[in-house]
Amino acid sequence: MKVIAMIPARYQASRFPGKLMKDLVGKPVIERTFEAAVKAGLFASVYVVTDSQEIKKTIENIGGKVILSKKEHSCGSDRIAEAVQDIEADIVVNVQGDEPFIDTESLKKLIKTFKDDTKRTIDLASLKVKMTDIKEINNPNNVKVITDTDNFAMYFSRSAIPYVRDKDVSTSYFKHKGVYAFRKEALLYFYNTTMTPLESAEKIECLRYLEVGKKIKMIETKSESIGIDTPEDLVKAIELLKNV
């Protein structure tokens, strides 16, 4: 089973434009992420997929593999699907370009999920982490997921799900972490479909997979990723890296 990593790296970002090229203790964020993915030792190859000549040059200068997107894309799945069409791979792992502190143990769990799936019932695997802070649960920027008894995703939402009608009933809330592992054929199927109604309403790309009948296995992790979505996040990342 050949496993590769794809790092979608769009230059513009609505909340923090150009964040992937911001300095993170002597190196751009995207360079830190690429190096961390390679260092993890889990992938046959690691690629950066970008729409930016500046990012392309940065990765090429350190000997990395980089693919320049030919089209404009609305989501990371489309960007990496375009890039992976002619690359030999069984499993494609989407590593977020703005998360330079890679959680190797969680990635190992995702990959093992496919190795154990001898009947090929899983199209995608992704991560979830338990939430307890009510403000975080109600924050629409945090995508929540509910699963069935076998930990297959039933629905993703920006709303707090499940809704607890009777307040004496105990329930758990899980945040979806945007790290995916795909069977290549499922990723290409997604690329050749159009945006679905629930995906359009919630602006959550994994809903399209559910709406077209794909199976998403959710793996619980206790590790909270450190993403760089704002200038404040970058300051925190700098302090963390300095103390490593």
Rank of each mutant, 00 (worst) to 15 (best):
D123V: 00
D78C: 05
A153Y: 14
N94W: 13
V212A: 09
V212R: 05
V164P: 03
E199D: 03
R120E: 15
M21E: 11
V145N: 04
E239L: 09
F43L: 02
K175P: 15
A36Y: 06
L24M: 07
K65H: 10
I67Q: 06
S74Y: 09
R165M: 14
K222A: 04
D116W: 01
Y155C: 09
R165L: 11
P140A: 03
R32A: 07
G63H: 09
Y11V: 10
K71C: 03
D229W: 08
R10A: 05
D123R: 04
I216P: 12
T132P: 01
C206G: 00
K242E: 13
D148M: 14
L24F: 05
L234H: 10
K119M: 04
Y180V: 05
A44S: 11
E82R: 11
S45N: 14
E232M: 07
P162I: 10
N61T: 02
A36F: 06
I134N: 14
I228P: 04
L210C: 00
E220R: 14
E35M: 06
T113Y: 01
Y180K: 03
D103A: 00
T113E: 04
K177M: 15
K108T: 04
R79M: 08
A36C: 00
K203F: 01
N138R: 05
S157T: 05
R32G: 05
A237T: 04
V164Y: 04
T193P: 07
E232L: 11
K222C: 12
P8C: 08
R10T: 10
G41C: 03
Q12C: 15
R15Q: 08
K203D: 05
E185T: 05
T104Y: 08
P231M: 09
A81I: 07
E60A: 13
Q85Y: 10
K65F: 15
P100M: 00
D233L: 06
V38L: 11
T193L: 04
D229M: 04
T221F: 06
E220S: 07
D51M: 02
K184P: 07
T118D: 02
V169Y: 09
L241D: 15
I216W: 15
K128N: 14
K2E: 14
F190H: 03
V143M: 00
D51T: 01
G18M: 08
K22T: 12
R32I: 02
A44K: 13
E224W: 11
S69Y: 11
I87W: 12
F182H: 12
R183N: 04
K215H: 14
L20V: 13
K203H: 01
K203A: 02
V38I: 10
T171Y: 02
A44R: 14
I137R: 02
I146E: 08
V49F: 10
K177P: 15
T196I: 01
Q85R: 07
S126Q: 01
R32W: 03
I111E: 13
K184M: 00
V235W: 11
T221L: 03
M131Y: 10
A89V: 14
L124F: 12
S157L: 09
S45K: 15
M154L: 06
K236F: 15
F156M: 12
E202D: 01
A81T: 05
E136V: 05
F182M: 10
V46K: 08
E31N: 09
V48Y: 06
T221A: 00
L68T: 02
D229P: 11
A44H: 12
S14E: 14
T147E: 13
F152A: 09
I102C: 03
I204F: 07
D98L: 01
M154P: 15
S126Y: 01
L241R: 15
N192I: 02
I226G: 02
I137Q: 04
